[in-house]
Write a protein that binds this DNA or RNA. Sequence first.
DNA 1: CGAGAAATTGAATCAATTCAATTTCGGTGG
DNA 2: CCACCGAAATTGAATTGATTCAATTTCTCG
Lengths: 241, 241
Amino acid sequence: MKKTELSIHCQSCSFSHLCLPVSLNQDELDSLDNIIERKTPLHKHDILVNKGDKFRSLFAVRSGSFKSAIHTEDGQEQIVSFHLPGDLIGFDGLYSKRYGSTTTALETGMVCELPYENLEEMSALYPNVKQQIMIHMSGEIQQDQEMIMLLNKRTAEQKLLHFLSFLAQRFGERGFSKKEFNLSMTRNEIGNYLGLTVETISRLLTRFQKENLIKVDGKLITIIESNKIVAKANNLEESLI
Amino acid sequence: MKKTELSIHCQSCSFSHLCLPVSLNQDELDSLDNIIERKTPLHKHDILVNKGDKFRSLFAVRSGSFKSAIHTEDGQEQIVSFHLPGDLIGFDGLYSKRYGSTTTALETGMVCELPYENLEEMSALYPNVKQQIMIHMSGEIQQDQEMIMLLNKRTAEQKLLHFLSFLAQRFGERGFSKKEFNLSMTRNEIGNYLGLTVETISRLLTRFQKENLIKVDGKLITIIESNKIVAKANNLEESLI
DNA sequence: CGAGAAATTGAATCAATTCAATTTCGGTGG
DNA sequence: CCACCGAAATTGAATTGATTCAATTTCTCG
């Protein structure tokens, strides 16, 4: 696959500090950049990878956002993560050779594709790259375990506040505003992710607005009392933050 | 550290089909066996590894059972897994160099210790070993995600039935009876793991007994209607199992 | 602009928790 | 070996946070 002159390089990508390139040296980075293919844009509802499909490539989100979900025996969807630019997708299936979940675009977005074969070749030369993927995997384990804690130990209010401040933080890390952002997922998807119903999400958002913690304007969320949100989400006094 | 004549070898261990040795060849197995240290027994409440401690070793459960837990900001415990013989402990922190959770013995038990340095040396020679650990990691991710689904999409009844049949299956894989086994964890710990209260666990167990799904005698559980349990746990008709 | 999807809001319901009171278990020391 | 103590488990009654059901309203995009 030929690269166009327009293609963006890892070296100049504004998300490289969150993505695979973290801690790679110049040689490694050049090598990585060479094997990466930039895919044409995906649109809302487009499926990037399907759970169970043979693992072919790793993907890095370049723009837009995605959701990954698994399905219950009786066919319900369970969203297990939302992906923002810089996030890596597909590595959960790297070693079982099949994708572990289905990833769908929430809005128009672009990804970088990292074909598995090339990755293997490269790994032989630069073991650092594989190491980097491992770090992402253990990060994913920790994140999933914290999710389990959130689901088991927190109220609906705390779950949603945590979700909002987590999102805000992630937007911040990516150079976007952490005070004001658009939700690319529906209320339904937020509820699915947090184990709550749409109605509960809706009621809580209007309540948070009344309590002046946030401002809600459809999909646009403005964080007003960031500290209070974190404190409430964690059952702590605000002064302890 | 010198090995005694009494020490058991991976080659003859009855759990090798579940543990690191899976799919290792004879040379790899011998090499692995050489670097493994067998630790003295741990007793109930003994801590094997502490979350946040520097990663020094990987552990394989040889006998007994363990729990791994993380803690909320405000100090509550959240159990994230129970470990049986053959299970690997500590790999969640392998690449972040710190243990990701605290692991405690639920009863008297033994573990095999795999010092990190030796593991690294060995990996250079036999990349298969590292590969095997990666497979365990991606398995852990999938298991955690299924846990998220269980917590979000299932009722208390379904959660506990799933827990029981999952335990039964795991005992079976280890050569123990999958029809009759002892719970090494308290009702409280089961509730903690499943996001339910002790009272709910207790009530459900007596109800399951009345419905003739299981027999409960203190910590001793006897599975009576295995198919019905799986069906109920998954919201399905028994005939579809 | 219009139709279907998404979101909001209210009222009624319920699954699981909380609170409270015993009972049973398991380990320890006399 | 048994008595005793604290921990674990059971059971009941009352409470409640979140869901379900239902009815609109508001978006979104073809």
